[in-house]
Write a protein that binds this DNA or RNA. Structure first.
Length: 746
DNA sequence: CCCGTCGTTATTTTT
DNA sequence: TAACGACGGG
């Protein structure tokens, strides 16, 4: 028996809706899967079920996700259910695109050896294609070009105006495309757009693909863009009734990437675009307590543009979420630090038994912008709370890594202008910008840049440098056999990076001989960085690939397409630390305890957000809330340092949307907050609890009185106003006057 | 070529 | 405020 788990067994753990989704057949299927409703389980089970019960050939199943991580997890879980799932194509959209383009490079008008340019490279290429642009204009144009490709708009497309009204843009886009095609490489947008165009224009290839892929599943469909929809449509062969089974899974309430071209309408209109679609809702939430869930629901129901669903908590009621109003952002970081530290201590329950403290790793601090992590980092460092910042500076965009990758990319494709410019003069070989331009100008269409190096006339110094460079390239060339490209190359497992059969051997030689190691080693010594270690990490990761051209391309694909690669010290995944993370980055994650910070108007949501965009911000808030399993805290500050000056902040409008019964409030709510003065307000500040509104006091100078008002001053001090029997109201700072202002017990 | 200084500019970012 | 990029002097 091949199965790792019996179908009866894996089906029996599903609830009725999940099971219905797994066994569904005969038409397209839209699964609306709420947060924490077990959607990955459904997809993976469906894959196993199709293979074992419906006798679908695993290789004819194509499952696409958006992140490498998601693809990996899906693959692993499917294989755990049925090991034949290892033969299924479980990939990211982009890696599928890359795979497709290597097969049909000719039809797409590109080089089969292409590598993928990232956003940075795009900017460089735009400024080379249109030198009159400033760097900033180039960056803007590059961004618009990506966006255009997200909609499959070509430079001559009439609809380009919806992206940019300036007619000059089409020319910039066109110039960029010509320059890009000359390199033989592609950008991220091409990985979707080109396959779409090939399929659309080539009936034969389309038919071949329809024959090959009988089942297509898409995860996180709410985040797909128009180009991805168009590609899916071609693969599914909707128009020609190709009989391909399409199943998409997503949650319209969790669509948070509109700004990057994601189109919620894809999921909202799926039933129209794929006629006869069945709809299954997964509304049982296995993650959060019902208190947290109803809090989330009270927020997201304020959105108009949604299919609508109501999550039901399977777990118990749990603890009510807490909203904390704090005077300043420093109080916010302190509050979080103390909350976490307090919980971390070993505590005693009511019977006096020791209860282990809450591990740091149970906690996540969520914020809207990366910059907000700074305050928490400072405070945590000070209080010695271990933390991990997720996603701020990424491995792949580090200078040294980009350098090494550029060398590798150039070895793979010697028409790669961007890579060439990056490596030719690093370390210095006396070849400046002008010499580089001259070399490029010498290259005839379709030729290697090396031919330009040989044809060009330069000064003695530059010519020597170029010669040196060419020799290096030729040396590397000999090291890497051009074995027939097996696109789906098996990845042999090995440990030794020094094995000449492994790509790591090649990578190590390249970074060494090209002078990169030496170059960055000196940088490390000056700046105390760990660039050399990062390069070593890159070498290590190449051990999984064979030392061939195909292996190199495969490696570059995986690096280029995997932006979530951990940094060098990230090996110890076990480290007990608090997670600091942007709201966007939390998608797909969950934590026992979540603190969503900076809930202030202007920060979250940003104040330029209205209409659809405001709804997206609200969904982002919803995503944040639904990450929490057990406890949820929301913090909002009255005062925040912003762009140099200190600003008064008012609470996020989203806070007013939370049902009163769904939240417990601590701290002094500003008057602009609708619950303010509702009498429900509590404050965890011990002073505020002692000197609360209505308390009778005795002052040694003014006599008996009553506290009629409490507030926090601008600098965060707790202030009480006391009305004395003798008449007159005085204000005090209890912090300094605990001795002279006494609380009277009746 | 490297370093300092000045000025500019502040989202989110699966691939 | 702070961080980063551009530019100019040594």
């Amino acid at each position: 028996m091949v199965n790792t788990v019996e179908p009866d067994e894996y089906l029996s753990v599903l609830n009725p809706e999940q099971k219905a989704a797994v066994v569904h057949d005969g038409s397209s299927l839209l699964i609306l899967a709420g947060a924490g409703s077990g959607k990955t389980r459904v997809i993976t089970t469906k894959i196993a079920y199709l293979i074992s019960q419906k006798h679908v050939d695993p290789a004819s199943i194509l499952a696409v996700t958006f992140t490498k991580k998601a693809a990996k997890e899906m693959q692993e879980r499917a294989v755990a259910l049925d090991e034949r799932a290892a033969k299924a194509q479980i990939r990211t959209f982009h890696s599928f695109g890359a795979f497709f383009l290597r097969l049909y490079a000719n039809e797409a008008g590109i080089n089969g050896n292409f590598t993928v340019y990232d956003d940075d490279d795009m900017v460089t290429l735009v400024s080379k294609a249109v030198p009159s642009l400033t760097r900033q204009q180039a960056a803007q144009a590059a961004h618009k070009i990506s966006l255009a490709k997200d909609y499959c708009f070509t430079p001559d497309s009439g609809e380009l105006g919806t992206i940019e009204s300036d007619s000059a843009f089409a020319d910039i886009y066109d110039a960029y495309e010509k320059r890009l095609r000359a390199t033989g490489n592609v950008d991220f947008g091409d990985l979707i757009m080109l396959p779409y165009l090939v399929l659309k224009n080539n009936e034969q290839i389309r038919a071949r693909l329809h024959y090959r892929y009988r089942v297509i599943m898409v995860d996180e469909y709410q985040d797909s863009n128009v180009a991805q929809f168009l590609l899916l449509q071609q693969l599914a062969g909707v128009e020609e009734n190709a009989g391909v089974y399409v199943c998409v899974v997503g949650d319209d309430d969790q669509s948070i990437y509109k700004f990057r071209g994601a189109e919620v309408q894809n999921i909202l209109n799926f039933q129209k675009q794929f006629p006869g679609t069945s709809l299954i809702r997964l509304e049982k939430n296995y993650r959060s307590t019902s208190e947290i869930l109803s809090c989330a629901d009270s927020v997201v129901k304020n959105n108009d543009d949604r299919l609508g669903k109501t999550l039901v908590a399977v777990r118990g009621k749990g603890k009510q979420p807490t909203l904390v109003f704090l005077p300043t952002q420093d109080d916010e970081t302190q509050f979080c630090a103390e909350l976490i530290q307090q919980a971390h201590k070993t505590q005693k329950d009511k019977d006096g038994n020791k209860v282990p403290g809450v591990p740091y790793s149970d906690w996540a601090i969520l914020y809207r912008t990366n910059a907000q992590s700074l305050g928490f980092e400072t405070e945590f460092l000070h209080k010695k709370i271990p933390y991990t910042v997720v996603g701020s500076l990424k491995f792949y965009e580090r200078e040294e890594i980009k350098d090494a990758l550029a060398w590798l990319a150039f070895c793979a494709n010697q028409r790669d202008e961007i890579a060439f410019r990056r490596i030719i003069n690093k370390p210095t070989r006396g070849i400046g910008d002008t010499s580089q331009d001259k070399i490029i100008a010498q290259v005839k269409e379709g030729d290697s840049i090396l031919s330009g190096c040989k044809a060009v006339k330069l000064s003695k110094k530059a010519a020597d440098g170029v010669k040196q460079f060419c020799e290096l390239v030729e040396e590397f060339e000999e090291m890497i056999p051009n074995v027939e490209a097996t696109v789906e190359a098996e990845q042999p497992v090995a440990k030794k990076t020094a094995d000449p059969g492994k790509l790591s051997y090649f990578v190590e030689k390249v970074v060494e001989r090209a002078g990169l190691v030496e170059y960055h080693k000196s940088q490390d010594e000056i700046a105390g960085t760990q660039k050399t270690a990062n390069i070593q990490e890159l070498v290590n990761s190449a051990v999984l690939y064979p030392c061939t051209k195909a292996g190199l391309l495969d490696f570059l694909d995986h690096i280029e397409l995997d932006r979530t690669m951990e940094n060098a010290e990230g090996e110890d995944g076990e480290k007990d630390s608090v997670t600091l993370i942007t709201l966007h980055n939390t998608k797909g994650l969950e934590f026992s305890r979540v603190i969503i910070t900076g809930l202030e108007s202007g920060i979250f949501p940003r104040d330029d957000k209205t209409g659809e965009e405001l709804e997206e911000e609200r969904r982002l808030f919803y995503v944040g809330i639904t990450r929490a399993r057990d406890e949820l805290y929301l913090t909002s500050c009255g005062l925040r340092r912003l762009y140099g000056s200190t600003k008064y902040m008012s609470p996020s409008p989203f806070l007013n949307e939370i049902g009163k019964q769904n939240i417990r409030i601590l701290g002094q709510a500003p008057s602009s907050f609708s619950y303010a003065g509702g009498g429900q307000t509590k404050d965890d500040n011990p002073l505020a609890q002692k000197y609360c509104k209505g308390a009778s006091v005795y002052h040694d100078e003014y006599g008996h009185g009553q506290i009629v008002h409490t507030e926090y001053s601008n600098d965060g001090e707790y202030v009480v106003s006391v009305s004395f029997e003798t008449g007159g109201v005085k204000r005090f700072l209890p912090k300094y006057q605990q001795k002279s202002l006494l609380i009277e017990n009746n």
